[in-house]
Every structure is written in structure tokens, then in C-alpha cells.
Design a protein around this nucleic acid. Sequence first.
DNA 1: AATGAATGAGCGTTCATTCAT
DNA 2: TATGAATGAACGCTCATTCAT
Lengths: 192, 192, 192, 192
Amino acid sequence: MKTKRQIQKEATRKLILDAAYQVYANEGFSATTNQIAKAANVSHGTIFVHFPTVDNLIICLLERFGSEINEHLHLLSEKDESLETFLAAHINVLICYEDFYKRLISEINSLPQEAKYVFINIQSVVSLHLNQVIERDKEQKVIKEIPMHIIFNSWLGLIHYYLTNNYLFAAGSVLTDHKDELILNYIKLIRK
Amino acid sequence: MKTKRQIQKEATRKLILDAAYQVYANEGFSATTNQIAKAANVSHGTIFVHFPTVDNLIICLLERFGSEINEHLHLLSEKDESLETFLAAHINVLICYEDFYKRLISEINSLPQEAKYVFINIQSVVSLHLNQVIERDKEQKVIKEIPMHIIFNSWLGLIHYYLTNNYLFAAGSVLTDHKDELILNYIKLIRK
Amino acid sequence: MKTKRQIQKEATRKLILDAAYQVYANEGFSATTNQIAKAANVSHGTIFVHFPTVDNLIICLLERFGSEINEHLHLLSEKDESLETFLAAHINVLICYEDFYKRLISEINSLPQEAKYVFINIQSVVSLHLNQVIERDKEQKVIKEIPMHIIFNSWLGLIHYYLTNNYLFAAGSVLTDHKDELILNYIKLIRK
Amino acid sequence: MKTKRQIQKEATRKLILDAAYQVYANEGFSATTNQIAKAANVSHGTIFVHFPTVDNLIICLLERFGSEINEHLHLLSEKDESLETFLAAHINVLICYEDFYKRLISEINSLPQEAKYVFINIQSVVSLHLNQVIERDKEQKVIKEIPMHIIFNSWLGLIHYYLTNNYLFAAGSVLTDHKDELILNYIKLIRK
DNA sequence: AATGAATGAGCGTTCATTCAT
DNA sequence: TATGAATGAACGCTCATTCAT
């Protein structure tokens, strides 16, 4: 049983995390705690009641983000879908988080060490699912003899490249614009 | 004929650029002018004698970096080398600048607009050469029917992915460690 | 009802404005925010919690100063006093703010544009009252046929001259020392 | 006999003083030594060969300015001119130096102590001549019974007031625009 | 639990002055 | 004599963090 206070506290905590997500997505991780407080409609000090430091806020935010995105990704694995369907589903999930994800892959190296674990975790979930799908295709001998991690890293490399260099390829969402092209050609690459 | 003064001035300028290169490579582009001054062993004010603003310092540094790396790359095009040789040469060049290049591809979006042009320029030089090498192979029908820009972006995507996620793959230089594997498998991907 | 917090905040704001008033009066408007912070016994950053920029601090200070001085001057108009009484009252008001006023009339041209409006406003209040008093005397044909603005500017010119050149005329307050002489002779000048 | 070197040195010194005069007239005394060096077409360091500190430069500049303006004023006294002619001549002299003089009377209190002596000297020369002219008129009983220093300070007060508040009265030269009005009305004031 | 005023170290930048050339 | 690169203290301002309310 949660007391009224605990419920209130968790609500505020969520408010801050939601705001931080939006602010970081829009401004990058150099956004200030003041901006986040304003976006969350709480006082500046409240942030530090819930999170002892900004780094801690970022870590908690990324943990939540990791869980959320992984939950989305898990739903993919249940069905017995084709490679094409899986890749499309993966991109569709990323589109939901596109702005934030873009910031994340760009600025990951300047974020606290623990943030990286979240990032690794997300990638390993995708890897796991991709593995399953590919293995099936491999049995049918349609996939080249290339190590799984290269197959996986090529895919992530390709879409991360398009995301980080968004400005070269699209005015709005690069994933929305180039989704089909990316999937089609990536499959061509890994197929015999 | 340069006067002793001019030589001295250029030496200091080089000192600052070299220091900035090292500091940015180690700390990322959020490093401060104070850190750079200390690394260059000059007073803080001296930086602003040579560069009116930090942004200008960054742009000059990137221009120098761009020229340097392009010079390296141009040497490649003169010879009639194989795809494998070219990719190895490309990686070898990047190894020389690995830490700095890693920061650059990560943080390019937070750098001044002019910095992006330098980055685009570097990439287009690589693209140009890769194009030549691939076209030759394409005539021999060994390359898949995939648009050139996808071929190019897959390569950059792959090595940028390994660079930005260095910590996943290697303790030291990820390019040194995975060079052969990357080249070998990338070629497998684009070949029929 | 004000909360304790609001009271405290206003107190600090007043502390800063009071300190700024004193520091500017003593050192001129080239005094630094550090000096003001020290004089106010608050940390340097606190100044910028209350005033986004120095210019804003100066403008707020001048607005307060303008209100205060105008309030003093308004009290004069209610009575049906003689020219002599009015001029004496004007000088008496200025004596209260002498050091600050001296800096203001000296450095007005290097202050932000909005500061000038405050200054103009103060002068126009004086002008208004002087006008009323003079008009009465003019009806009695004791004042020369001279345009009102010249009458007004002669008065301000005279006392501003004594203020800016204080060091020529007095060790302490030039207005206190020369008040009677200035009034007496100014009246002689404008009377027939 | 001056050596070639001495002649050259004096020429450079003059170059710097001329430039400083122009720069201070245009920008006020907060202009930097760099601006002056550029305007004088000499190197920054050269300024400090001729003047140990900026304050010393300002003092020397004001001494030269004082001599120059006093020389102009001295020419006035030789003739046996009327009060009106004298005041017109005074204003005409000031018009030659208007921008610089305006800065001087505005910023005199933030200039080094010695600068004030120059200013006092200029004023006493004007005072001397005005005295002579007025005394003549006084003998003819056309001037009011007012102490000479008040008569003098009213005049300076009036024109200084117009100069410091130039922006209230004119877009260009306030002395050129209001010269006749000022003289005419000032004479009205001091005449019986 | 939430507030928000206060803190102070640190930022990029300016500028009078120095001194080797 | 003239130069101009180098200096470093000081500037206005930012911001994560603290703590009395």
C-alpha cells in the first residue's frame, strides 16, 4: 500500500523525467536543470529532491528509456515475422523516440559511464531479436556467411549514420523518409 | 623570407592548435579554453590573440585537420589499387587521428555550422575515391546492384559505429584491433 | 499577505539596489558587479538572480531613483510657494541624492538608452513645477521676456555646472555650500 | 639642433596624440589603446614607448588640447569687441572641438586628477576674457549687480548643459543649431 | 514533499602593459 | 625607435547544487 505522499512523490518524479526527456530531445544533453524544471512545471529545487545530481537524473531517465524501448522491441519477437518485417518494426520503434535517440547516440560518450550500460542493453535486445530472425533465414541459406555481430553492427551502423547525419539526408525525420530504402538495400547487402 | 617574429607567432599558433587537438581528442569539444591554454603552456589570453573566439579556434583546427586528412587520402587515388587496399588505407589514415575523429563524428552536431562543412568535405573526398575504386569493380560485375551512396554510407556507418562504440569492442584502438575483420566482411557484404 | 520568502527576496533586492546606489555614487557607473556584490554583502551570483544583466540593474536602480526623487518633488507643487521656496526645495531634494545625481548627470550618455528616459522624466517633472511657479510671477510682470525653456535650462545648467565641477567650489557638498548664493543670483538673472 | 631620430620620435608622438583625439572624440574615453594605435597607424606597443600609461597619454593629450584651445581663445581678447561678439567667438572656438569637448565635460570626473587641472585652466582663460568684456559693460551700467563668477558660471553652465544633453536639442551640432538663441537669451539674462 | 533564493566556481572574452626582437 | 606577441587580472554572466522555509 502506498501512502498519498508516496503517490504524489512518484507523480512528480514522472513529471520531471517526462520533461527531461522532451528537453533533452529538443536541446541535447547540455540543456540546463532550470530548463527541465520549467518544462516540468516544478521548482528548480524539486529536481534535486528526486535526483541527487544531474548525472543521476540522466541515468534514471536512460534506464526508464531503456525499459520502455525494450518493451516495444520485445513485442516484435513474439511473432514469427520476416527479416523485412522485423527491420521495419525496429525502425518504427526508433521513429517513436527519434529525436531523443539521435541525441543519445550522438552524445553517449559525454554522458556518465552508467548511461552507456543502458545503451548497451538496448542494443543487445535488438541484437537478440535480429539474431533469431536471421538464424531462420540462414538455415534457408539465403544469408551470406558473415559473422552475426557484423551483420548486426552493419544494420545499426547504417541507421545510426543516417540519424547522426540527419541534416545531410532529410529536413524532418530521416528514418521516416529513408526507411524503405534502408531496409531494402540492407537486405540486399546481407543476402547472397 | 619570414622574420623571427613571424616564425615565433606561427609556432605559438601551432602550439595552441596542437594542444586543442589533444585536449579535444581526450576530453571532447566541451573542453575549456583554460584547459587548452594549460596544455599549450601559454597564458589564457594568448589563445585569443590568435583566435578571436573559441568557435573560430575550432573552425581553424578542423580546417587544418581537414587539409591534413585529405592530403593523406589524395595519395591513395593516384595508385590503381584494389578495393581492399583502399579501405585499408582509409582505416590507416583514420587510425592516425582516431581519438580526435571519434569526438568529431560524435559531437559534430554541437559544433559551429562551418565545422560541418569541413566534415562534409572530408567525407566527400573519401566518397570520391571509393566511387572510383568501386566503379572499376562494378564493371567487372563483382559488386551488387546497390546505389553508390548506400555502399558508401554502409562503410562509413560501420566504421563510425565501431568508433563511437569503441568501448564495446576494444580497450585501445578499435580500428587497429578490428581493421581486417571490418574490411573483409564489408567487402563480403557488397560483393555478389 | 507576503510570505517570509517574498519579504526576504525583496530585502535582498533592496540590499543590492542600495549597495549599487552607494557604489555608483562613490565610484561612478564603471564600478563592477563584484564591487556591488561585496558592498551588498551577497555573493556575486546573487546579483544576477535579481537582475538579468547589469544594464537591467542600472535601469531598475534609476527607475527607483526617479520615483523617489519625483515623489519628493511632487510634494512641492501642492503648496502655493514662491519661486525662491521652490528653488530651495529643489536643491534640498538634490542634496539628498547629491553624489549619485552628480554621477548621473555626468555619465548619462554612457548609460543604456532606457536610463535616459528616466533622466528626462525627472527633468520634465522639475520643468513642470518650475513652469507653474514662473507663470505666476510672469503674470506679475517681474520675470524677463525669455522663453521658458531657456529659463529652465539656465537653472539646471547652473546647478549641474556646480555639481560636475564640485571640486572647484567645495570640499564637501557644493549644493549645501552654495545653495543660497545660487538661488539668489539665479533669481536676479531672470527678474527684470 | 634636433637629431633625425628626435624629429621622427616627435612626429610619431604627434601621430598618436592626433589619433587619440579623434578616437576619444568619437568613442569617448573608454576607447582602447588598440583603437588608438590602429587610428594612428602605429603598432600597439609604440603607444607605450611614448606614454608610460594610458592615463599619461590622456594627460598629455589634454595638455595639448588646453594649449590649443587657449591659443584660440587668446586671439579673442586682443580686439575690443562687444559681449555678443565675444560669446559668439567662444562658441565658434568650441564648435571646432565640439565632439571632444563634449566628451571632456561629460567624463572629466572619471579621468585622472591631473586632467582636471587642464580643464580648470581652459575655463580660467575664458573667465579672464569674459571678465574684461563684462567689466567694460558694467561700467556702462548695463549689466546687473551679480558677482562675476556667477555670470561666468551661468554662461558655461548653459552651454555645457546644451552640450551634455545634445540629444535633447539637436541631431548634429547643438552649438551650431542653438548658438544665436543661446547668446541672445544669455545676454538678456545678465542685462538689466 | 516542495520551494526558490543564494551560492561560488568557472565560463569565454577584453585590454593595458611588458619585453624580446 | 618601433614592433607586436604574450601576459594575466578582471570583466559580466551561467548554472548545478544547497538549504532555510
